[in-house]
Each structure stands twice: as C-alpha cells, then as structure tokens.
Design a protein around this nucleic acid. Sequence first.
DNA 1: GCGCATTAAATGCACATGCATGAATGGCTG
DNA 2: CAGCCATTCATGCATGTGCATTTAATGCGC
Lengths: 162, 162
Amino acid sequence: MKKKPSSEATAAWIRLMRVQSRVLDAVEQDLKKAGFPPLAWYDALLELSRSPTGELRPVELEKQMLLPQYSTSRLIDRLVDEGLAMRRECESDKRGQFVEITEAGRDLQKKMWTSYSAAIERHVGAKLSDADAAKLCGLLDRLGCACGEMAAPLVKDAAQAR
Amino acid sequence: MKKKPSSEATAAWIRLMRVQSRVLDAVEQDLKKAGFPPLAWYDALLELSRSPTGELRPVELEKQMLLPQYSTSRLIDRLVDEGLAMRRECESDKRGQFVEITEAGRDLQKKMWTSYSAAIERHVGAKLSDADAAKLCGLLDRLGCACGEMAAPLVKDAAQAR
DNA sequence: GCGCATTAAATGCACATGCATGAATGGCTG
DNA sequence: CAGCCATTCATGCATGTGCATTTAATGCGC
C-alpha cells in the first residue's frame, strides 16, 4: 500500500533529524571542551546513581539508555577501567552481574552536570519559552511512546541531578 | 554564570534525544530490511539529483548534509564504488572536483524513496495530525535556526522526490 | 614572481560500532 | 532428571568514525 506521508509529516521528520543532530553536536562539543567524557558516560552514571543501591544490572542499564547489548557491555568496560564503576557478581543469578557506581563515578556525574546543564540551557532553554518547551515535549512524546514500549516512568525528570 | 535550565527545557532536551533516536532507528531498520543502504546514501543522492546539473562540489554536499569533511569524502568513495556517482575534475579550480550522480544513482534514490516515505508515514505521519506536525516543525526550527547558520533554503521540501 | 596563509580533498591511525557468535547459566516440559 | 530453548553477558572481526596531518592548488600582499 505504501501510503505517502503528508508534506507536514515529512518536514517534521527532516527537522527532527537535523535539529537533533545540531543540538546534540553543540552540547557534546561543549562537554568535550570542558574536558569531559562523552554524554553516554553521563547517562550511565546518572542511571546508576539514581538507583537506591547505586547498582544496576547491565540489562536494565541497557533498557534505560537506548543502547544495544554489546554497546552497554563495552561502555561498562570503560567505566570500570576509569574507576567510575565496579562489576559485582550476582548471587541469585550467576549469569548476571551488578554494576555499582563508585564515589569517583558519583563525583564525575555531579561535575558533568554543571557543564551539561549549562549547555542544555544555552542550546535549548535559551531558545524556547517554558511553555513552548512543554509543547515540544508533548508533541515528541506522541512520536516516541506509541513506539511499542512505555519506558518513560523515570525519564520525566531524568536530570534531577545534584 | 552557568545558569540552570528550566525543567521544561531539560525535559524537552531529553525527549528530543530519545525520540529522535527511536524514530531514526525505526526508519533505518525499515530501510535495511528492504535491502537498502543507509539513509546517508539517500540524502547524498537526493542532494545530487536535486542539482540542476546533477553534480555538486563535495564541499556543498558537506554543507547540505551535516557531515564533517572527511566523512563526506568517504561517503563519496562508497557511492563511486557502487557506481551511483562519478568523480569529475573541476576545470576552474583544480583542487576541487565535481561529483555527478549516475543513472543507477537516480534509480536507487527513487526506489529508496518508496520505502523511505512509507517509513516516514508509519513512524511519524501516522502518529501526528498535519497540524501537529506543522507545530512540531515550527518549534524545532526555533532550536535549529538560531544555531548560527541559516542553511534551510532548500531543506523545507527536501523530500520532494520523484 | 615569491612567500604565505587559505581552501579542497584524501588518508593513516587509533578507536568505536554493528553483527554474529560463543560460553555460561537458568528454567521449562515432558 | 534429560533435553531444549531462553537469558545474560562477552568478544572476534569487519567496518565506520574522529582527529590530525598531508597533498595540492589558489589567491593575496608585496
């Protein structure tokens, strides 16, 4: 059947791709210039630090962030290499493991948030009123949620860092 | 000064990243399942085919798509390898060159558009009314355009394929 | 015309990613 | 309990990407 998208839908698609790419680039650049690791590290550290116990199963991390399994596995490798997290074996299920954030990890997450939040403000907040940001949010949610999963219970304030 | 972003701005940022990632993924998967090359190839072929002469300088291509110079260079390599484009030397400026789309390239672009447009409809059009898509567009533009460049003269109907 | 900064494009090298697969464990079914 | 499929995580290999540098040609100032 191959129905064609309306020109509005197509335009929205193009904007979504281009604008995201630019804004992400800008924010990543800001972080890099401040001497910090990539955003993905922050996301992982944040998820870990948000867990009551400071630890998560790789599988859970993988679902929170939208990464493939192998990608999560290697991200954890790097965090561990840098002393930002530790692997801990899982008693109840010996296939699995836990990843626990270290103090250094928590520190880095907090420090990054300073730069990160400034970058968000600069590249997003400064260009949109709160009302418009909320509208944007609502429209984007309509695209994401119907995607199959719900997966947005704790996302809503995922940056309540510090 | 490091001003903090409002929670609305932060939420919008997070949605922008996550939703784009999901939707892009979905569309790329659709294309891949249909046996087509990555989206970037389509974008490049479209830009080339849109040029009146069917050719562009790599530098121009690089500006249209949001790619770094070396990335464009290698993308062209692949297109040429597959017979979808040809390199042609530039008379007036011997440093430069022209990249010209071939018939095979035009064909592929058109064929991809069938799948591509269906994917856009499925993952964007179907989830948003035209009015909402237009709103989304407007909000996104506010984020992208103030970015420094204008760079959206021909983007507005960049998918007027076929 | 000569030196020199500038622009266009390619490339070597380290590192990241995607994909398929493997290894270990768990759990279900008969 | 035996067989079998599912789950969790790691990894080898090919491919892609980022970054810095190189090569080549231009234009500019003098």
